[in-house]
Simulated scan of single mutants.
Amino acid sequence: MTTPYRCPNCKTNKSRFNLIRQVPQSVKMDPNTGSIVEEYSSESLQAFHMPYRGPELRVQCAACGLIEDERTFVKFGEMK
Rank of each mutant, 00 (worst) to 15 (best):
L45S: 15
D69M: 14
F73R: 00
L66C: 02
H49V: 12
Q46D: 10
C7S: 04
N13Q: 02
G34S: 12
L66S: 09
M29T: 15
T72H: 09
E78Q: 15
S44Q: 01
S42N: 04
R6E: 01
M50N: 10
K28C: 15
C10H: 10
L19R: 10
M29N: 08
T3A: 13
K75Y: 07
A47V: 06
F17H: 09
T12Q: 14
C10S: 00
R21N: 14
L19K: 05
P55E: 11
D30S: 00
G65Y: 07
V74Q: 09
L57G: 13
I67R: 14
Q60R: 13
Q46M: 13
L66T: 11
S15L: 07
L45E: 08
Y52N: 05
L45C: 11
P24R: 08
S41P: 14
E38L: 05
N32Q: 15
G77W: 06
E39V: 09
E43T: 13
F76K: 08
A47F: 14
I36A: 01
F17S: 10
G34N: 05
C10V: 00
G34P: 12
M29W: 00
F73H: 03
Q25P: 13
R16C: 05
M29K: 11
M29G: 02
Q46T: 12
R16E: 15
P55C: 05
K11P: 00
Y52F: 09
P4L: 08
K14D: 01
S44R: 14
M1A: 09
T12P: 12
Y40E: 06
Q25H: 12
P55S: 13
F76W: 02
V23W: 00
R71P: 02
V37L: 08
F17T: 05
L45I: 07
E68L: 06
P8A: 05
M79N: 07
M50P: 02
Y40W: 15
C61R: 12
K14S: 06
C61D: 01
M29S: 10
D30F: 02
T72G: 03
P31F: 05
K75S: 10
Y52A: 01
C10A: 11
N9M: 08
E70Y: 04
V23D: 15
G54E: 07
A63K: 12
I36T: 15
P31V: 06
R71A: 15
V59E: 02
Y5L: 04
Q22P: 03
S42P: 08
A63E: 12
Y5C: 00
T2C: 02
S15C: 01
G65P: 10
G34D: 03
M50Q: 09
P4T: 04
C10N: 04
S35A: 11
R6H: 01
H49S: 13
R16F: 11
S15E: 07
R58D: 07
C64H: 01
I36H: 14
G65C: 10
T12S: 06
P24A: 12
Q25C: 03
F76C: 14
R53Y: 03
I36E: 13
R58F: 04
T3N: 06
K80N: 08
C10G: 05
N18E: 15
A47K: 09
M79C: 03
V59C: 10
C61I: 08
G77Q: 03
A47H: 03
S35F: 03
